[in-house]
Design a protein around this nucleic acid. Structure first.
Lengths: 263, 263
DNA sequence: AGTTAACTTATGTCCGGACATTTGGCAATC
DNA sequence: GATTGCCAAATGTCCGGACATAAGTTAACT
């Protein structure tokens, strides 16, 4: 199997540096699921690819820096475990995390939950207009009082396993991760300040002359858009809080919801 | 001067690895302002410290990865220029940068500009209630139409040199940096969605049933708060846009102002 | 004076070897 | 059976050398 020398070949005539080729090959093999639990040691790679240990180390170096693999002295390198806790992703995460943190009971009333087609949303998800989409519309309550209206569209192809879930207490991302293994890894959102329509005000049971955040979000998984979301949050019960510094950049932090709770 | 070998000494008996010591020494010397415009080459360091080129390269590697120094083939390494453009700092930066980017003329009408005392603001700046503060209130126009009301308080002690500046076309941060050398390095802000009062609507000349962003910001310089700012931005002409991913985290990006320009 | 060619210098890449240090497993011992 | 000691294996560190390649400099040439 892992016998002799030079089992695997690298293009030695020009093109890319050897260590770069090796690095890429390792990434490819890793993406193909080749190293489930044991990663080849440096000397094994030296033997396999017929390069010096220095070159192997140079290839591994960035992989270690990026946290793809973990290596310690005297121990065989292993593939790094998936990042434990997903980084807070976006203002929506901030919203629900802050409710959670403040200890207020969090609940959702599912108003609609079905599969349908929507040409406009489908286009935003880069799908055919007739593609079936799972649609979930919830009224989110915090402390038994309406906080936000949340509407999500996902391609039925990926979200079908969710259809028999109960979303009155669990989070969409939790179910999505648990049932399909899918986790958003990229997204963009646009945050507007709006005055809710009368219908929205009725649903949110909020007084007149109250503004709201309107957030449109497009979530991606591995480069493909898989979630369109629109959330309308009462402006009298929520605020975005951010911190920034030259070193850490701009970060949303969990606002103190109790301060904006019920004026 | 830089003659012989081993001019500079490294602790060779245990403790930290040579490359780490070298890296630290280089960082120290750099912090002392020793390499203003020319950084020693690899071979020079080999000669100076009496280590192999491999060790020198290992020490430099992380410095290059961190962008501290820049090295290219055949060219002497140089100290990387100070971070080109200051990192977008907060939603306010995003606001004015996006106006700038869209090519719309940006102008301010200075409504008030004086020195006064304000107990509430002083407390937020951690100052005595009677401390004199420079107060600047501007109506910010984009494309000759009102976009935001901007009010800033700074301790007079640091902002005094600004008092004879004309803020109808220049930015506060620009003047502050130019006249006093002060640049904000940290801050926090709270973003609310509100319905503007009638007086504010009048100033902003915006139609009824339009919401607004209300942003409170506290800016720091080297751990001391030096700026309290309140900005009210028309919600029909501005939106916050953000991107996030597991690798880069949450970042505000410049929204397309033209899309929200004038409905 | 302007252009080209050759040379120097510097980093990028790659190889070989050597020793230190830590881990993990095996074996001998109590 | 549990502990201890030893050895092999693996990575971390460090050194030396060699050639390739790009940039800058100088010299020669038109």
């Amino acid at each position: 199997m892992t016998g002799g020398s030079g089992t695997r070949a690298l293009d030695r005539n020009g093109s890319a540096p050897l260590w770069q080729q090796l690095q890429q090959q390792l990434l490819d093999r890793l993406a193909a699921g080749e190293f489930t639990e044991s990663f080849p040691g440096e000397l094994a790679l030296v033997d396999d690819y017929g390069v010096s240990r220095h070159t192997v180390r140079q290839a591994l170096q960035q992989l270690r820096a990026d946290g793809v693999i973990v290596a310690e002295r005297g121990r065989q390198p292993r593939v790094a475990p998936a990042p434990e806790i997903q980084q807070p992703l976006g203002a929506l995460y901030s919203l629900f995390a802050s409710v959670e943190a403040s200890g207020i009971t969090q609940e959702s009333v599912v108003r609609t939950f079905d599969t349908r087609a929507d040409a406009l949303i489908a286009e935003r998800l880069e799908l055919e207009a007739s593609t079936p989409l799972v649609y979930l519309e919830r009224l989110r309550l915090a402390g038994e009082e309406p906080l936000a209206i949340d509407r999500v569209w996902l391609p039925a192809e990926v979200a079908a396993p969710l259809l028999d879930a109960d979303f009155s207490h669990t989070s969409l991302y939790g179910e999505l991760s648990q049932r399909t293994g899918i986790r958003l890894d990229h997204g963009s959102e646009e945050i507007h300040a709006v005055v809710p329509t009368r219908a929205e005000r009725t649903q949110l049971r909020c007084p007149p002359d109250v503004a709201a955040f309107s957030i449109n979000r497009l979530g991606h998984v591995r480069g493909r858009p898989v979630e369109w979301r629109h959330t309308l949050i009462r402006g009298d019960r929520f605020a975005l809080t951010a911190e920034f510094s030259a070193s850490t950049g701009y970060r949303l932090i969990q606002p103190d919801l109790s301060a904006v709770k019920t004026p």
